[in-house]
């Protein structure tokens, strides 16, 4: 597998860091080397928030992703900030319920998914992040299906395991969009 250098970005509170954690854990369950690096500091208080996640067969060198081959953008400022950093051939998943602009780059694969709207419609409020993950999984097959489910189980706290099912539903929904 080629290395995945991913950036997930949006507002604090959208579950950006959780999304990253699910990917990292899913990678770990698939026997990959993984790293998860959050932005931290004042930007987490309602401002923009992002994290870098790397999956590789080799030990991860720099965990800070500058030029991602995968980007998930959940708000306008993040989309504007990162869209031009994506390497040619990269995959971009955008929550089009919240991001109104589009890119005119034609060297990357961009998918505009109304994730927040779909989450609200399907009783999956707050799981727009996981819907986008479902789309990413479908488009890139970043990990095996079993590893993805294990990644969700590992990332959801022990006391909240009843939420695993809705997360898995969100992944399925994302894949169908």
């Amino acid at each position: 597998m080629a290395d995945l250098n991913m950036v997930f970005a949006g507002f604090g509170g959208q579950g950006i860091l959780f999304l990253g954690k699910v990917c990292a854990y899913a990678g770990l369950m698939d026997g990959k080397e993984v790293s998860w690096l959050p932005s931290y500091g004042p930007e987490m208080r309602g401002g923009t928030c992002n994290c870098s996640v790397c999956l590789s067969d080799e030990p991860i060198a720099s965990p800070l992703v500058v030029n991602p081959n995968v980007l998930i953008a959940m708000n306008g400022p993040s989309f504007d900030k990162f869209i031009d950093t994506v390497v040619p051939g990269g995959t971009v998943i955008v929550d089009s319920s919240l991001v109104k602009s589009k890119t005119d780059r034609d060297d990357i694969n961009v998918f505009y998914i109304p994730a927040t709207e779909q989450a609200d419609k399907n009783g999956l409020k707050g799981l727009a992040n996981i819907i986008l993950l479902g789309k990413l999984f479908k488009e890139t097959g970043l990990v095996s299906e079993d590893a993805l489910e294990l990644g969700v189980k590992k990332s959801v706290p022990a006391k909240k395991q009843h939420l695993v099912e809705s997360n898995m539903n969100a992944i399925k929904l994302g894949g169908s969009l």
Binding site: K21, L28, V34, S35, L37, P38, Y40, P63, L64
Partner: peptide, 10 residues
């Protein structure tokens, strides 16, 4: 450093 402190790895 802050990067090592904040990042997650296996």
């Amino acid at each position: 450093d802050g990067m090592l402190g904040q990042m997650m790895e296996p």
